[in-house]
Nucleic acid binder design. Structure first.
Length: 492
RNA sequence: GCCGCGUUCGUCUAGGGGUUUAGGACGCCGCCCUUUCACGGCGGUAACACGGGUUCAAAUCCCGUACGCGGUACCA
């Protein structure tokens, strides 16, 4: 592998960055880091009609959140600035002129309505979508059908025009995709792609090729939806006299049912699609990254839990899967729990703080960490800690089903007795509180379960949670006794 | 329609001619641990789309069919 690897992630600021985009960015990042190369971020903002103001900030925030730092790009700058296509107009113009001069591109004056009319006229059941190409261009209004004087007259008059690529017929365009191997197309299938739009902006195809070349991009790693446009790009590289970069087309991420993972589609299934949603729902960035990396790739052995650095270490494009991968929220959540638990206690505490405080008000760090120590194995999300609000404040009510099942006629009595004995338990440790309860059970001739379940209910309000005595110790003796007595009063 | 790319358990996938009674993970089920719920451990469920070929031998190679996805824009 060349040691001057340069890859880029080139999103369009048309909305919130979605997980498919993040995975593309991730693979590019991994490839760059794996080969000691450079990761470039380029904003492809050539479509003014779809431009969304907040999108760029969201892209930057999302990448930063995921830990995918880039080496060149917006705000950061770099030797190939600017990194916004909207600011690289002169460059595109120069190469468009070159293509026109060499006869590989031509001016076209057809209005959208005229093109639609052509499609309508030529449409047949066998060919429902006629294109502007070698078979139709000679009946349109362009520099190939109009004489030079007329073309110049229209240009001078300020008529709207586009510049189209003059695609040759019957040539084979082939290339070796890094993940799929040899792929070939017949150029007869490709249309005379617009290169320069009537608003003066380049289309994706032109801008992409010009930028990838001028930014010295060595490897293009992007979604499979771009595979069909490779022949256009190959032709452009050839006409411009440039060497095309290596290319890798990644399989798509599919919805849980195998369809397209569109926003609408995903919403219906309760699957978030933008990175921002995952962030807001409390997914750990390490987990999302790990999960996304495995949607279409694996290291070839049986390891599954990876940090970003470990992914860098193990990554290779060649191991990319060839088929689309369905999104599986269950697995993501499992991975989230795994990553969460692997974090240091204090880090989990900080990640849980917001949710906990939203529920019970300000909490001291020591208290928060004690709670994490108790609940860690039970957390899928850091925010789940807030479900154990009883660790921070006395329960206000008692789980109905739990009371039905666990609170017996003698429960209030036993709970009061336990509270009384705890008064004398100076140590108040896991061992001592348990010993006190066992002794009580023996003295009262009651089963251990006859006491512990009501005690749990009385002190936490619920029937599930961490070890009972560990929990009591975290609550402290005063709170424990207070809660026991109050519950005995309330539940009778 | 045409072009392209795909197709191994429900899902993510390993495996790329004999090592395979097709392996792992999530999910699901059962058991163990246990005061509960988790965690963890153990076990179970479950797949090579179909049809032809090539070969002594095919999940693995070739062809076809079916199905899925992508593309077919002055969107990216």
């Amino acid at each position: 592998m060349a040691d001057n690897v340069r890859v880029r992630f080139a999103p369009s600021p048309t909305g919130l960055l979605h997980i498919g985009g993040l995975r593309t960015a991730l693979y590019n990042y991994l490839f760059a880091r794996r080969h000691g190369g450079t990761f470039v971020l380029r904003i492809e903002d050539t479509d003014r009609s779809r431009y969304v103001e907040e999108a760029e900030a969201d892209i930057l925030d999302s990448l930063a959140w995921a830990g995918l730092d880039f080496d060149e790009g917006p705000e950061k700058g770099g030797p190939h600035a600017p990194y916004y296509q909207s600011e690289r107009g002169d460059l595109y113009k120069r190469y468009v002129d070159q293509l026109i001069a060499s006869g590989d591109a031509y001016y076209a004056f057809d209005t959208p309505a005229e093109i639609d009319a052509m499609r309508e006229r030529l449409k047949t059941p066998d060919n429902p979508t006629p294109t502007y190409d070698a078979s139709t261009r000679m009946e349109m209004a362009n520099a190939l059908t109009l004489d030079a004087v007329e073309v110049q007259r229209r240009l001078d008059a300020g008529d709207e025009f586009v510049v189209r690529l003059k695609v040759p017929r019957g040539r084979s365009a082939r290339f070796e995709d890094l993940v799929r191997g040899w792929v070939s197309f017949d150029t007869s299938e490709v249309d005379d792609q617009v290169l320069l739009k009537s608003d003066g902006m380049p289309t994706y195809h032109l801008a992409n090729v010009v930028d990838d070349h001028t930014m010295d991009i060595t490897h293009v790693i992007r979604g499979e939806e771009w595979l069909p446009s490779v022949p256009k790009h190959l032709l452009l590289y050839e006409f411009l006299g440039w060497e095309p970069p290596a290319m890798a087309h990644l399989p798509l991420i599919l919805s849980p049912t195998g369809g397209k993972l569109s926003k609408r589609n995903a919403d219906k299934m309760g699957i978030p699609v933008s990175v921002k949603d995952y962030r807001e729902e409390g997914y750990e960035p390490e987990a999302l990254v790990n999960f996304l990396a495995f949607l279409g790739w694996n290291p070839g052995d049986e390891r599954e839990l990876f940090s970003l650095d470990e992914l860098v270490e193990a990554y290779s494009v060649e191991r990319t899967a060839h088929s689309g991968a369905q999104f599986d929220l269950d697995k993501l959540q499992w991975i989230n729990g795994q990553h969460l638990r692997a974090l240091p206690m204090s880090e989990i505490a900080e990640r849980a703080r917001e949710a906990v405080e939203a529920r019970v008000g300000p909490v001291e760090t020591g208290q928060l960490e004690a709670a994490v120590g108790l609940m860690r194995e039970r957390l899928t999300f850091a925010r789940d800690l807030a479900d154990a609000a009883y660790l921070f404040e006395d329960p206000t009510d008692f789980e109905e089903a739990g009371v039905q099942k666990r609170w017996k006629d003698d429960s209030a009595h036993l709970v009061r007795l336990y509270a009384d004995r705890l008064e004398a338990d100076v140590a108040f440790t896991v061992e001592s509180t348990e010993a006190v309860m066992r002794q009580l059970a023996e003295d009262e001739g009651a089963g251990f379960g006859r006491i512990i379940h009501p005690v749990r209910l009385a002190t936490t309000g619920v029937t599930v949670g961490a070890g009972m005595f560990e929990t009591l110790v975290v609550l402290g003796r005063d709170a424990t006794i207070r809660r026991l007595r109050r519950a005995a009063d309330v539940l009778g």
